[in-house]
Design a protein around this nucleic acid. Structure first.
Length: 444
RNA sequence: GCCGCGGUAGUAUAGCCUGGACCAGUAUGCGGGCCUGUCAAGCCCGUGACCCGGGUUCAAAUCCCGGCCGCGGCGCCA
């Protein structure tokens, strides 16, 4: 490895390093050439620092190297750390330097200004776009969300599982999945780990979570859909009701809300994106039956959703605004969805079988989590399949899971990119995916 | 899948409605020059574009048709 230190660490130790010779390696962020003095701002993953090449102080052959330097090239600078009137308060007076790599042609995207380019252009040159520190922060936040997910559910006694992404059938009807040639057969890319996380509970792991890719073959043209994204999944055995599942989901979001107020790095990111941390009231995230939501939308906003139908995007936004004003909550559980719009494995209400023990969680007016209690009784599950008009034999391997002792269980799936998008209030979910796959895009 | 909007230098845009003075303007980038404290550095010079094909017209970046590509709304969903 190159002997180097991260810029953030150097600045953190600036008092003790002041006056000493140090080395910084990174990308050339900006060059300001004033003739006798040339400022080269270096950037690494952790920050930026100014190096200064000055006639009289820097050896002449090193000044020559500075002249050859191009923006976004890779440069190592050895020099003396000293105080300077820069944003960081310090700079490096260059005594030695080496170009490790220089661009071979003009850049198609100005890295430090990449947010001014259109999204298609940014995605086309994503490896340059992502060098923009602000863009990079999106992915650092996404990484933080995924880490919190693992930490939270691990701390609650969940076991991480890793399930196949090449599967024999879809989780719902077989539609909306990508087919792949699997030797001499057709297989599919998993649209959800649904069946296998239930499998894991039934297999005795009791409480499990998974972070993994899911694939949706739907030709969406929206700012909130991807054909490949990462799903944060949980599944829990021995629940008494679907409220237990919501409690676990709520615990995770509460952790996100609290830690984003506590951790300096995250606070800094939210400030840079000019967004507030997630707000959750002391009394908890409101849990509103969808039948009540129909009423609220109609009476408060004059918005008519056909009874028994799903909310449309406008309805979700409106109810998001409603709970923000009324409960000071960025989140709302909408519960007891109609059976007709939920998958066959959803448990129906005992007393009202056209409604279910299921829920969605909306974050700032966008659905980010779906979950519920699963039907764990073999005969009822078969009946559900029948009621959905699905062929039993297509799901036989799944039905077999339910033959030999199944605890009542439920779970939820959360869209990592949607959570990231909503926390930072990004305009397009593609911004929250390093290399988005959508209807047209499979490169880079 | 249905519907709508768009495509001008590397990037971002003006011009298009109302065809002609547009061999296409501006900013930034890029190349060169000046400048020893910049921090969106500044100043000077240069560079570079009308998506493709067909049509209308004396004349098309501008109007019409087709194609390709992009974006968005809905549906569906995380």
């Amino acid at each position: 490895m190159f002997k180097r230190e991260f810029i953030r660490d150097i600045l953190a130790k600036s008092r003790e390093l002041e006056g000493l010779t140090i080395r910084v390696c990174g990308w050339v962020y900006r060059i300001r050439d004033l003739g006798g003095v040339r400022f080269i701002i270096l950037r690494d993953r952790t920050g930026v620092i100014q190096s200064v090449f000055k006639r009289g102080d820097t050896p002449d052959h090193i000044l020559k190297i500075a002249e050859d330097t191009r923006e976004e090239g890779i440069l190592c600078v050895d020099g003396i750390l000293r105080r300077a009137p820069t944003r960081e308060g310090y700079e490096i007076l260059a005594l030695d330097a080496k170009i490790l790599s220089n661009p071979i042609e003009p850049l198609p995207l100005e890295t430090h200004d990449s947010l001014k380019a259109s999204l298609p252009t940014r995605l086309k040159y994503r490896w340059l776009d992502a060098r923009n520190p602000k863009v990079s922060k999106i992915f650092q936040l996404k990484s933080w969300v995924a880490r919190k997910f693992r930490e939270y559910y691990s701390s609650q006694g969940f076991i991480e599982i890793f399930t196949p992404k090449i599967v024999a059938s879809g989780t719902e009807s077989g539609a909306d999945v990508f087919s792949v040639l699997y030797f001499d057969r057709i297989a599919y890319l998993a649209q959800s780990p649904q069946f296998y996380k239930q499998f894991a509970v039934i297999a005795g792991f009791e409480k499990v979570y998974e972070v993994g890719p899911v694939f949706r073959a739907e030709p969406h043209h929206t700012t909130r859909h991807l054909n490949e994204y990462h799903s944060l999944d949980i599944e829990i055995g021995f629940i008494e009701s679907f409220h237990d599942v919501m409690d676990y989901v709520e615990g995770f979001f509460r952790k996100l809300a609290e830690d984003s107020r506590r951790e300096e790095e995250i606070k800094g990111m939210l400030e840079e994106f000019e967004v507030e941390p997630i707000e959750i009231p002391e009394t908890g995230i409101p849990r509103i039956p969808i039948r009540r939501v129909y009423e609220i939308l109609a009476s408060e906003y004059g918005k008519k959703i056909p009874y028994g139908e799903d909310l449309d995007p406008e309805g979700e936004k409106l109810i998001g605004n409603y709970v923000k004003e009324k409960y000071k909550s960025d989140l709302v559980f909408i519960i007891e969805y109609p059976w007709k719009i939920r998958p066959f494995y959803t448990m129906r209400k005992e007393d009202e079988p056209s409604w279910t023990y299921s829920f969605d969680l909306l974050l700032r007016g966008l659905e980010v989590v779906t979950g519920g209690q699963r039907e764990h009784r073999y005969e009822k599950l078969k009946q559900n399949l029948k009621d959905k008009g699905l062929a039993e034999q297509d799901f036989q391997y799944y039905l077999d899971f339910f033959k030999y002792g199944v605890p009542p269980h439920g779970g939820a799936g959360m869209g990592l990119e949607r959570i990231t998008m909503q926390i930072l209030r990004l305009q397009n979910i593609r911004e929250a995916r390093l290399l988005p796959r959508d209807t047209e895009r499979i490169t880079p």
